[in-house]
Design a protein around this nucleic acid. Sequence first.
DNA 1: AGTCTAAATAGTATTGATTCCTACTTAGTT
DNA 2: AACTAAGTAGGAATCAATACTATTTAGACT
Lengths: 139, 139
Amino acid sequence: MTKKPRYSRQRDAILEILKNDDGHIEAPEIHRRLRKIHPKLSLATVYRNLAQLESLKKISSIKNDSNINFFEIYREPHHHFVCEKCGGIQNLTYPTINICTSCISPHSNFKINKVATTLHGVCESCNVSQKLLNITKSF
Amino acid sequence: MTKKPRYSRQRDAILEILKNDDGHIEAPEIHRRLRKIHPKLSLATVYRNLAQLESLKKISSIKNDSNINFFEIYREPHHHFVCEKCGGIQNLTYPTINICTSCISPHSNFKINKVATTLHGVCESCNVSQKLLNITKSF
DNA sequence: AGTCTAAATAGTATTGATTCCTACTTAGTT
DNA sequence: AACTAAGTAGGAATCAATACTATTTAGACT
Ligand SMILES: [Mn+2]
Ligand SMILES: [Mn+2]
Ligand SMILES: [Zn+2]
Ligand SMILES: [Zn+2]
């Protein structure tokens, strides 16, 4: 139905960055990295292509609590941990919880595209620096 | 540790709106409703108090795909359905999945504050109007 | 190989929910 | 009644993301 998009050097480079990264990257970071080789690349182009790639299910995105969108190459569905302090995102390697999808199917007229389980809290490194701060405060 | 906040007529009214609503409301909607009785209420005040009430666990919030924050009175933990078309949010009445919390606890230095499972898709009413649109297009 | 056109891009302006700022007000303690 | 830290109103600022527009380009078709 939806036809295949035309090739673009820029989109290809964006996808390549994500293929070779095992984390979750922001659009401006992708832009920064590609600028070294494609000095004319526009940030708007990065955003436009990321949106397109996501709708083609080649990549996926997740937002942190500050509404910043992080992108990664499409992987097996998995869950995420979002740090409330630094905004960093980490993968959780526990099996996907599919029960929701099957549970809601009785509500037949819903169309479910994505199930996201996200834990919010304070990550290891932020937690440690928090503790250190408390110690120094007590003096 | 954190001391109880001072009483405020505005905060009380905001909480009252949420207590008497079973849905998920945006800050501007709360503002609109309260303006009828408190014409001088500032939208910034609504946002500030919603943030405070949430940190006191009296209310909770969830964002739709357009980053708009919806608020509700604190309830038993539950999951949500977010419509990609209209941005509306609905509760899912299936039992909370706690396994993630217990699974990750071995990663001891994480602090988990919130577990959110959210389904993204097209809600019943949007789905129906989508179908009607397709029918009219085929003429 | 040249022509054509819809899709893509660069660069910039705009959006819009939320937060910040500051002078003023007020709850509540002494 | 006086004091003060917390809260408010109103408006400005923020900033990730999107919209806009003139220009370029992939790739289809002669
Ligand atoms: Mn991931
Ligand atoms: Mn809810
Ligand atoms: Zn962190
Ligand atoms: Zn909908």
